[in-house]
Each structure stands twice: as C-alpha cells, then as structure tokens.
Design a protein around this nucleic acid. Sequence first.
DNA 1: GACTCTGAGTTGGATTCTCCAAGTTATGCG
DNA 2: CGCATAACTTGGAGAATCCAACTCAGAGTC
Lengths: 153, 153
Amino acid sequence: MYTRADGTPSTCQVARTLDIVGERWSLLIVRNALRGQTRFSEFRDGLGVPTDILTARLATLVTAGVLDKRPYREPGCRERASYHLTPAGHGLALVEAALIQWGDTFNPGSEGPGSRLVDPATGAPARVAFVDADDRVLPGIAIVPGPAAITVW
Amino acid sequence: MYTRADGTPSTCQVARTLDIVGERWSLLIVRNALRGQTRFSEFRDGLGVPTDILTARLATLVTAGVLDKRPYREPGCRERASYHLTPAGHGLALVEAALIQWGDTFNPGSEGPGSRLVDPATGAPARVAFVDADDRVLPGIAIVPGPAAITVW
DNA sequence: GACTCTGAGTTGGATTCTCCAAGTTATGCG
DNA sequence: CGCATAACTTGGAGAATCCAACTCAGAGTC
C-alpha cells in the first residue's frame, strides 16, 4: 500500500504499520476482534463489510501476524474457521484507543461515545497518554528522526 | 468513508475518526506536518504522493479542522498557501505515536526506526501507554460499549 | 511589454479498489 | 436424497488512485 516503487519497505514506521492495518475496514475488524468477535459472520454482521473484502482483509491480517486462523467446532456442527488476535493484534489496542480518544476529544458523536476505555481490573475510566521511562505522564511528545533518518518517507 | 448507507455518522469513534484520517496518505501527511512541514511542495517531495491526491487530502483535512490553511509570503515571492496543524491536528500525535510504537514492537524495519519518540523537554525516550485517572500506568485496557451502545458498528 | 521561472495546483486517461448481488462449496441433519 | 448454513467466490458496475502533462498567477529579467 505504501511500499516504495522499488519494492523496498519504507523506513517510516507509520507507513509500514499502515501497510498492514491501513486498508479500509482493517482497523474496524481489529476493533471488533478486541471486543471478542472471532467469526466471519460476526465481523460481517457487526460491521456490514462486503464479504469479499472481509475475506481479503482477514487473509491480510493473518499473513501479517495480527490474527491467527483456527478451526473450531460447535457440538452438532461441522468445523469452521475462527480468527483470534495474536500478541501483535492485542498490541493494536493502543492504536484503537488513541483513535477512540481523539474522536471523543475532537469529533464527539451526538449520541455519546460508542466505546469507553476502562481499566480491566477495576472498570475505572482509563486513557492513553505519553509517559517517560519512569512511567511519569508527559504533557506532550516530539517525533524526531531516528537512526534510519528519513528524507523521503 | 465509513458513513452508513442512510448518511448518519457511525456511533463508533474509530469509524468516525477514520472517516477523517483513514484515507490513504492522510496520516502520513499529518505525520510530516508534526515534523514541521507546512507546504504543498514539502509534502509532495517528502511523501511522493500524487499531487491531485495531495490537493484532495489537504482540503479534507482543512475541512475536518485538522489543518489550517494560511497564506504566507517570503521576501521577493508572491503569496502562497501553507498548512498548519490545529489543536485537533496536534492531538493526532498520540495516534501517530501509537502507530510508530506498534511498528517498532511488532514489525521493526531492518535499518532501525525512522522516527523516535522523545520528551520534548529533555530529549529522553518516551512512549505511549494506558493510564488511569491518577496518571498511573496500567498494564492493559478494555474497550467496552459506551452510552451509544453499538450493535452495528 | 515579452519571456521565463516556480509553487500550487487541474485535467485526462489507465489502472486498481470497492461494492453489491448472486452463486458455490462443504458439511450435518432429517 | 433434499435442505440449511457458514464461509467464501465470482462478475460487473462504480469509485478511488496513479501518472504524466498541462494550467495559472505573480516575480524577476531583459
């Protein structure tokens, strides 16, 4: 999606991450997976995504290591496919939470938030923030060039 | 992009946020804006984005309140357009940082990171994390249905 | 005034992606 | 066997993207 013309991956982490989850529907599929959905039919009915696109996105996410495809069998039913988040998939919770938090702050819906962020241990409200190495919350952050300095991307 | 067939916006903050920044190139344009780029030619040369797409994305981001379009004039030149992040645009730093951090953790590039996250006050490494209301770092987070409970999206 | 240069776009056409409806496959049940 | 159902495929229309070429407006040069 954002790979360069010569085929080499970008040194930019944003571009490389968006190569995996930047396609339409991908982050919504992951969001629903974070809510516990695992089946083709759940994603289809929960998101209204076209089934051919859903097939393609699930395959992309499995290949990228975000989802793990496993068979399951309910009593009296034949074997079917289910999709489970890998550790990398669970890691996307931070991205999803950042998107939710930005929407709440700068583009709130008229009916209130559809999702809330909570501490799973206590149920108390939680949020995403910048912290330093000692876990102290920082007021802001700077994104500076790293070792693979970027001139183009 | 993710608006429902009847035209009403989704109650899902992820879908509403992606409606604004989910189109191809948008988050890369914002990333470069966070690095200080402001001009059409800087985005074009820095990202390699087609100019017609860049025109469309800048217009979308201005309309959405992420960028502010301002004229500027350098000595001996005529007036030109520049684009500056609004507070909402700066708020996207959290999303960009989450994408960078996920890429570093689960999909690192062979040449090392292209960007690093630092405390702007000290230059020390920083990261994105979940915190509770008292700014204590949490090990994980749950995304639970909010007031506008979601059945579809 | 004619000529050129440059930043910021437009325009036209080919390619690719997305959407939707319809069809397919594999299995279990009566 | 015929039927039901989950999980896909397929075909075709429409939209988005890409690329190259072109336009436009003001500034500098002659």
